[in-house]
Simulated assay, not measured.
Amino acid sequence: MNLENKVVVVTGGSAGLGEQICYEAAKRGAIVVTCARRTNLIGKVKEQCMELSGKEAYAFQLDVANPESVERLLEKISEKVGKIDVFVNNAGYGIFQEFTEMDPAVIRNMFEVNVLGMMVLTQQVAIQMAEQKHGHIINVASIAGKIATPKTAVYSATKFAVLGFSNALRLELKPLGINVTTVNPGPIETAFFDQADPSGSYLSSVGSLVLEPNKLAQTIVKAMIHPKREINRPHILGAAAKLYTLFPAIGDYMAGTMFNKK
C-alpha cells in the first residue's frame, strides 16, 4: 500500500518513537493524525508533519485510559479527517520496580493505558476498517512481552497481554482484509526511561542494545507499505526471545543474570 494521501493515526505521538513514526509517514505522503495527552507537543508534531508531507495534518488530545476521550477522538477523526487506513497503538508507559513495592494504583493504571484502553480504541478502529474492507493496525508491544526480567513484572505482563491480543486479532481480521503487526522493541533512547528508570542507569548499562527511535520508525513505516506479522529489534534480542521459548530454563537464567540490568 502506498502511503500517499493515506490517513495514518499514531497514539503516543507527542515524542519519542511515536513522534518519529509521524514524521516518517509524512515523508511518504501520508495524512498524519498525531494523538497524545500533551497538546502543546502534538501541535509541534503536526506542524512538522505538514512541512514534510505538504499536506494537512492533525493533532488531537487523547487519554487512552479514558473512554470518553477515546470516543471524542474517534468522532473528531471521522468528522475532520475521514476513514483511517493505518492505526498505530504506540501510547504506553512502564515503571521498573520490584513488584512487592509497587503501588496497586500504578498497577491498575498501567493496565488501563497499555492494555484495556488500547483494546477499547482498537475495537472501534477495527469495526470501521472491517466496513471499508481494508486497514492496518500496528501495536507497539515490547521485547519485555517475550522476555520478562526482574523489576518488570507489571510492565511485562501488560506487553505479554498486548502480544496475545494482537496474535488473536490478526487471525480474526485477516479474512476482512485488515493486517495486524506487532512491534517488539528493546530499549529505545527516548523519554520513556525518564519515568521507567529515573536513575538513568539502565540505558547506560545496556549500551549497544539501545535503539535509535528514528531508525525504528523507518522500519515500522516500511511495514505499513509491505505488511509484516512482527518486527523485533534489535535482532539479537529477537533471537534471544526465540531461544527463551525453546529453552525456558536457560532463558530464566539469562533473564535473571545477563539481561538483569535494571
Rank of each mutant, 00 (worst) to 15 (best):
L74C: 13
A255E: 14
F193N: 01
Y93S: 04
E4V: 13
V115M: 04
C49N: 00
M1H: 11
D252E: 15
G164N: 07
E98S: 14
C35T: 06
F192G: 01
K46S: 08
Y58K: 00
A57T: 01
Y23F: 15
Q61A: 13
I137E: 03
F87H: 01
G92V: 06
V206E: 01
F60N: 01
E47L: 07
I250A: 15
A255T: 12
V162P: 00
A168C: 15
H226W: 07
Y58R: 01
A36K: 01
V86D: 00
R233G: 04
Y253L: 14
V125R: 02
K215P: 06
T100W: 09
G92A: 11
L203C: 05
S204P: 02
G135K: 04
A36L: 03
K27L: 15
F87Q: 00
M50T: 12
I225W: 05
L41N: 08
L209S: 07
A240S: 12
A241Y: 07
K228N: 02
V86M: 01
Q124P: 09
S69Y: 11
Y93P: 00
L17S: 03
I250M: 05
E101M: 15
I31Q: 00
A126M: 07
M102Y: 02
K133E: 14
E24M: 05
L121D: 05
L74M: 15
N260V: 12
E212L: 08
V125Q: 04
N89C: 12
S142Q: 03
A168P: 08
L171A: 14
P185G: 12
T182M: 08
T181G: 04
L62V: 10
T34E: 01
V81P: 00
A196K: 06
Y155A: 04
L216M: 10
P67I: 13
N90C: 14
A126I: 06
A153F: 10
